[in-house]
Amino acid sequence: MSTAAELRAALADRLTEDGTLTEPAWSAAARAVPRELFTGSYFMPVPGTVPTAYRPAREGEPGWLEGVYTNETLITQLDGRTRPDDVSEETVSGNPSSSSTLPSLVLRMWHRLGAEAGHQVLEIGTGTGYSTAIGAHRLGDAGLTSIEYDPTVGRAAATALNAAGFAPRLIIGDGLRGDPHGRQYDRLIATCSVRYLPLPWLHQVKPGGKILVTLSGWSYANALALLEVTRPGEATGRFLPGYTSFMIARPHDRPPRPTPALLPGQERPSRIDPAKLDDWTGGWVAQLAAPSAERLGAGAEQILWDVSTGSQARTAPDTNGGWSVVQRGPVHLWDRVERAMRRWQDVGEPHQEAFGITVTAAGQRVWLGTHDGPGWDLPI
């Protein structure tokens, strides 16, 4: 049986071989930080279950340590309250609300942030503390402040960080409000997704500083952006290659809603293939066009449900080999989605890295190609 140190070295070797680890300082952090201290127990999804069921994996059980050193996200909390050690049943269901992000993504994000020794960095979302430990190893404890929304999660992270020998500045609070003491930072990294850039971030990161954040929404499509703050309250940047997703920050998550009831509406042919919404970037473009809608379904049978107005759109195959859409309510959701998707298709359906974002006092706008290209306002 391999030891934790051997498994950690093997994982770091794999991440070096696949190009994740390209800088010695971050490689040293990956080889030094004991992930097992931050994932004393976690949930494993049970294959084939709908809705997904989870099995607790606890310290000392067969396969637990090997699971810690897989390049996988490990779920550590369900429904904002249930942790693996709270579960007495063999399996449990629920919605993931906290996790230890897969190591390759943690390390790629720290690389992309461009944080160096001497920088002051604000991390939004301490989570288990594993990413925080990676950052503290590179920057030193004095260079890193981390904010966690959930007090239970934050206390567990503080214990694990102390056990691992790190003592960065930790805060329990709403990270979307930034540092409650108003400190200034050179870099900000978010390990949760947001619907828009919180204004405190844009005032606490110094001009010339960078913000690395995942933009998401109520359809849970994600895109990773790197922005440079140009002046207090303003920033611009581009979306990055790859496929990055994070749980949405709880204050930005959709409000509770009743179970959708599919009601009659106006029917017409669809001008796009609904299955395009299953594409990584296609679904995100649709979310930009209908930011207050939740997306259900898949393939030719998509359902959009507007959380704020109750408007609906649902698609289905028609008898002519195309698709039909039924819309209901004050917001014509599918009309908006079609216009956005056709603009994206007209330029060859590029990945998100073809898009950029500009934040000013007038609003927050995602654009395609160039600043004056087609664009969509984020909901703020």
Rank of each mutant, 00 (worst) to 15 (best):
A4Q: 14
A5W: 11
E6R: 15
A9V: 11
L11S: 09
W26E: 00
A29H: 01
R35A: 07
V50L: 09
V50K: 03
R58V: 05
E59F: 09
E61L: 09
G63E: 04
N71A: 13
N71R: 10
E72V: 10
L78T: 12
T82N: 12
R83F: 13
E89S: 08
T91Q: 07
P103H: 13
A115H: 03
G118F: 00
H119D: 14
V121Y: 00
G127F: 04
G129L: 00
A136H: 01
A136E: 02
R138D: 03
L139W: 03
L139Q: 03
L139A: 01
G140W: 02
G143Q: 00
L144Y: 03
T145V: 07
Y149F: 14
Y149L: 15
A157Y: 02
A158E: 05
A164M: 04
P168N: 01
R177S: 05
D179M: 02
G182A: 03
G182R: 05
R183Y: 01
D186I: 00
D186G: 03
L188D: 01
A190G: 05
T191S: 06
W201R: 07
L202N: 06
V205E: 10
K206N: 14
K206M: 15
P207L: 14
P207H: 10
P207Q: 14
V213H: 00
T214N: 07
G217F: 07
G217M: 11
G217D: 08
W218A: 03
A223S: 07
A235P: 06
G237W: 08
L240N: 04
P241F: 12
H252E: 01
H252M: 06
D253A: 15
P255E: 12
P256T: 07
R257W: 14
P258I: 13
L263G: 13
P264S: 12
P264Q: 13
G265N: 06
S270F: 09
I272R: 10
A275P: 10
L277E: 07
L277W: 10
W280C: 07
A286C: 08
A290H: 02
A298N: 09
G299T: 13
G299F: 07
E301R: 14
Q302C: 12
Q312M: 15
Q312L: 13
P317H: 06
G321T: 15
G321Y: 11
W323Y: 11
S324W: 05
W334T: 04
E338D: 13
R342K: 11
R343G: 11
D346W: 13
G348H: 15
E349F: 09
P350K: 10
A354C: 08
G373N: 01
W376N: 01
L378A: 03
